[in-house]
Nucleic acid binder design. Sequence first.
DNA 1: ACGTCAAGATACATCAATGCATCTTAATAA
DNA 2: TTATTAAGATGCATTGATGTATCTTGACGT
Lengths: 195, 195
Amino acid sequence: MKGRRRGADLEAALLEAAWTELTERGYSGLTMEGVANRAGTSRPVLARRWNDKAELAIAAIRQQMAKHLMAVADRGDLRTELLEYLELASTRAKGIAAVFTLFSSEYFQDTSSTPQDLRTALLAGGKETLRALLDRAVERGEILEQNLAPPVDTLLGVLFRHHVLMTFSPPPEALRTAWVDRIFLPLVKGHKEES
Amino acid sequence: MKGRRRGADLEAALLEAAWTELTERGYSGLTMEGVANRAGTSRPVLARRWNDKAELAIAAIRQQMAKHLMAVADRGDLRTELLEYLELASTRAKGIAAVFTLFSSEYFQDTSSTPQDLRTALLAGGKETLRALLDRAVERGEILEQNLAPPVDTLLGVLFRHHVLMTFSPPPEALRTAWVDRIFLPLVKGHKEES
DNA sequence: ACGTCAAGATACATCAATGCATCTTAATAA
DNA sequence: TTATTAAGATGCATTGATGTATCTTGACGT
């Protein structure tokens, strides 16, 4: 036996269980009872910490975001780093899809309980990581700052997120490469000499 | 009083009510009772026609798709038609978002009751309209067939859908123009002379 | 005008999830 | 060791939505 868990240890375990349930069953299939069972405990233990499943799910998501943060090292080459970025993001596809089921369920609700900061943090989704990566490329002289104007700078994130939401699965390697080589790089490398 | 509705009339009215409820409350907020009330009738009337809310929602969506089909006339200019396409799509943003709440709710469910054909039809989302529009532009010689290879051809639809799913609102005109002028047209008009 | 059938109203049981109270027991601090 | 606190188990009432049976009544065909 592993004995009885307490305090922070227990809380982390509960949030892990909640996250697993969320990714396996989606937000609509998430229940306090299900989480309690998976965590090997009972509902009152959950009820003492979170008021409803929205709070629980949000806390679980926060824990996941804190646990793995996206990081792409400087490889000296933009294309390499972009592909790495997309590959890394792909490993989180299921989670991203699951998280989105929460937003779609809660959005229309009277009690739109989703905190705005979490919402934007998730919809941005590793925006900073991508941005940092692009800024490095600008400094290297690989691309022009002016080609990274608003709708273009986040394009890869958009393509990725869209694919995940439509298919609930990560984009295959060939598709990621096509995004980079046939869409993104042509746009940011394109000569911009017109008046 | 308007008297008692029957048969096909009644059914159409029920599906209208269901659609309204779906767009106002989302799939998670959709209830048989809510639809019955809005339609000015009672639950048994609904129960005689559809077994659960998934069936009802799907039927309601089908009716909407049949009612307004997207059509963009030949304007002789690709850019004009693309903007018109996006503008037309924007009027349906709320509905698209609502429909997607159904998929996110049902996807993880054991009874993944969403018919595959409807799913693909919706995820494609006016793909044929856009395709027809692009083919006309190719025939006019405005763009090159070879520049419409897979990840590029559906790009505008992707951008649009992503925006709707992220914000649950239609993209403003300025953004739609940016998509067309700064992303899509540069890609499809781009000279492709490299080896 | 009459008969048939479905619309619409009403009532009741059910089911899943939850809120909450209670009780036992293990872990930790003193 | 002992007191305290929270973990974990259990039971019960409640709530929201649904399934379903029954009954009345309006619409339509003949």
